[in-house]
Design a protein around this nucleic acid. Structure first.
Length: 507
RNA sequence: GGCGCUAUCGUCUAGGGGUUAGGACGGAAGAUUCUCAAUCUUCAAACCCGGGUUCGAUUCCCGGUAGCGCUACCA
């Protein structure tokens, strides 16, 4: 069964591997993609998914992933805000090959491109004042007319424009969009998308202070960095024709555009802060394992071939990933499924891999383990099958690592209510104190013999002992717990059983 | 408002002119057991609406509706 599945994977992987990106028929090694976030201080879930898709795509074809920080909005960007994004990528295990480039440091490039466009006749100076434009726009909106710029300054003669500019009149540089025809592109995900040129306004390239705007800098950068495939959020679809026009006006080769659908909150609106966590670092803090998050993100909008299980290592993800299997419709962020991925990963991790992650949780929660490394590893191995989240290791599993734990009152109430059970547990503790064999079998024999001797159901003692030993009504098999905890703790905690009821807990 | 994109179980999706419309998460029931998780077995759950085209549309076409996106001297 397993063999068959593996072989099938390989076949499918090979098929996908043989797909050659349209723009680079003979040299897939020249494939270059980029992730270009704005520095908002943290890595957004949607951005993380875009970054992941770029990374998977580049890795699949052995291409290059470029990281570029789009910080041309001086008002909103500070250098410190880049840190959060880099950390988020690092946590997710997404590595880049080039960069980060900072757009604010590449302004000369954009100005040069702008100069070329001005020379070309593809761009013109606009002397309209901001307030003036805003007034016109709001009036047009009120009257139900289109609000786009009508090209007032486009009609100013070149000579006059240059003269006014030289005279020091503030001017923005606008792109002259062709007055008729249409502009389209063949999207790798959405297929052919066309826009009438009359729908595109003469957008600003350079602000009147000389700073470049988004469209100019992205295109100039993507050309300069020789980006072959632009994989980004579908919110950019409407921007793309403007950029296509820019590529044409600059005489550059057109990249392949691949727009990926957006990630929505449970209410089907765009994922935002009011849906809870939008920053990947939050998931880290919530006890999600990075691989689980990555796997989950990969499956949001992309589907592996039929018959392939959804839990996929990064190697498998890379092998299987392709633009052709990206969905066109937006996807809702499903926290339940993320949690499922998380448990899938945690339970299959070797304890050695889990320990450092768990140690981070202990540190955060102020837990100082009172056991040596080997028994900690053994405890983690015992517990991981029941873990859903790293937080469990400081929550319900706490008694396995430290003496400072608080019994769950509900569990005490349920299993230690009976005073005779408590008395028997104390007595049982004495038996364990002199027990030789502390293996699972050994500890089980002691309890079952004791139960038979007292003619009580073993189950009642088992459940009671579980609470006494772990403070929880839910834990792994009791005898595995005893064997893991060892003689000392087992006897001690059993003898302590009555105190759990009288005094809820000592902290 | 204009333009663009999208539309299969609650969610992520597969599929495609004739299918018992498949899988995964979640949900329900049962088995197992010292609890819980896991595991196993079952079950419920979907083709947005209306017109075409066709012998036959969930699938193709058109329209509607809804959702989302863009509509800045933001990115």
């Amino acid at each position: 069964m397993t063999l068959v599945r593996v072989r099938r994977n390989i076949q499918i992987g090979y098929e996908r591997m043989s797909y050659t990106p349209p723009s680079q028929p003979d040299s897939p090694e020249k494939l270059r993609v980029r992730f270009a976030p704005s520095p908002t201080g943290y890595l957004h879930v949607g951005g993380a998914r875009t970054a992941l898709f770029n990374w998977l795509f580049a890795s699949h074809f052995g291409g290059t992933l470029v990281l570029r920080i789009e910080d041309t909005d001086l008002e909103r960007s500070t250098p410190e805000m880049v840190g959060g994004i880099l950390q988020g990528l690092q946590w997710l295990g997404i590595t880049w090959d080039e960069g980060p480039y900072y757009q604010t440091r590449r302004v000369d490039l954009y100005r040069a491109a702008a100069a070329r466009l001005l020379e070309n006749g593809a761009a013109y100076y606009c002397f309209c004042r901001r307030e003036e434009l805003e007034a016109r726009r709001s009036k047009a909106a009120q009257e139900g007319r289109p609000t786009r710029y009508e090209g007032t300054c486009r009609r100013i003669g070149r000579g006059e424009a240059l003269r006014r500019k030289d005279a020091g009149e503030p001017a923005a540089l606008r792109f002259a969009v062709p007055e008729n025809g249409s502009t389209g592109f063949d999207d790798a995900v959405f297929g052919n998308v066309e826009f009438a040129n009359t729908e595109l306004e003469d957008f600003v390239l350079l602000r009147s202070d000389g700073s470049p705007t988004y469209h100019l800098s992205v295109v100039a950068d993507d050309i300069d960095l020789r980006i072959t495939h632009i994989i980004r959020g579908a919110d950019h679809i409407s921007n793309t024709p403007k950029q296509v026009l820019l590529y044409q006006a600059l005489g550059a080769a057109m990249p392949v555009f691949a727009h990926v659908p957006l990630i929505l909150g449970p209410d089907r609106t765009r994922l935002s802060k009011r849906h809870g966590a939008t920053s990947v670092t939050t998931y880290r803090e919530e006890g999600i394992v990075p691989e689980a998050f990555r796997n989950f993100l990969a499956l949001l909008g992309w589907t592996p071939p039929e018959g392939i299980p959804e839990v996929l290592s990064d190697e498998e993800l890379i092998r299987l990933f392709g633009l052709d299997a990206i969905s066109k419709s937006n996807a809702v962020f499903d926290r339940d499924k993320l949690d499922w991925f998380n448990t899938e990963y945690i339970r299959t991790y070797p304890a050695e891999k889990l320990l450092p992650l768990v140690e981070e949780e202990w540190k955060r929660a102020g837990v100082t383990p009172t056991r040596d490394r080997n028994s900690l590893l053994a405890a983690i191995d015992l517990l991981k099958a029941r873990a859903r989240n790293l937080k469990d290791f400081v929550g319900s599993f706490r008694a396995f690592f430290t003496e400072e734990f608080e019994p769950d009152p509900a569990a005490v109430e349920k299993f230690l209510k009976d005073a005779s059970v408590r008395r028997m547990l104390v007595e049982l503790g004495e038996r364990y104190a002199v027990a030789q064999d502390f293996s699972e079998q050994g500890t089980e024999k002691v309890l079952r013999d004791f139960a038979a001797e007292k003619s009580v159901k073993a189950g009642a003692l088992i459940n009671g002992a579980r609470v006494a030993l772990t403070g929880q009504g839910v834990a792994p098999s009791l005898f595995a717990v005893m064997s893991n905890l060892g003689k000392e703790r087992t006897t001690q905690r059993l003898k302590n059983a009555p105190s759990l009821v009288v005094t809820p807990a000592a902290r």
